[in-house]
């Protein structure tokens, strides 16, 4: 169990470091860094101290800490998936508008020449 806990904590630490790197490259905003930092700190905390979730487990009638982690993971995954989907749609729409406007503009300019 200790080995698995150590692995999880190392993974969490690495992800925390990665989030910081991504922020340093200005690919995410500070609020996003804070969100991910909280996610990974909680992950590390729960990995090292599984009993710390007792209160939450009792409140939500969840049997094991692992189950709680799975539920939270799915929630985060859905959030990220939806965010990716909506961002993709936004980028696609912007790209279409840009290419279309550019095509019309160049067609009209060519005729003027």
């Amino acid at each position: 169990m200790i080995l698995l806990q150590l692995l999880s904590a190392t993974f969490g630490l690495y992800m925390l470091y990665w989030s910081f790197l991504v922020y340093k490259k200005r690919l995410i905003y500070i609020r996003e860094l804070v969100f991910w930092a909280v996610v990974w700190v909680v992950f590390i905390g729960v990995s090292l101290l599984p009993d710390s979730t007792k209160l939450v487990l009792q409140t939500f009638k969840i049997t094991r800490t692992m189950d709680l982690l799975m539920i939270l993971s799915f929630m985060v995954l859905w959030l990220v998936a939806y965010r990716n989907y909506s961002d993709n749609r936004k980028i696609k729409r912007k790209l279409q508008d840009l290419v279309r406007q550019d095509a019309i503009k160049r067609a009209m300019e060519k005729k003027k020449k």
Partner: peptide, 25 residues
């Protein structure tokens, strides 16, 4: 002939819109 060229392939529907927008203009 009026030729509007998309720099990337966007599909028939979008090409039709570009063409109609240009024609309306």
């Amino acid at each position: 002939v009026w030729v509007a060229r998309h720099r990337v392939n966007l599909g028939k529907g979008i090409a039709l819109r570009t063409g109609c927008d240009l024609a309306v203009k």
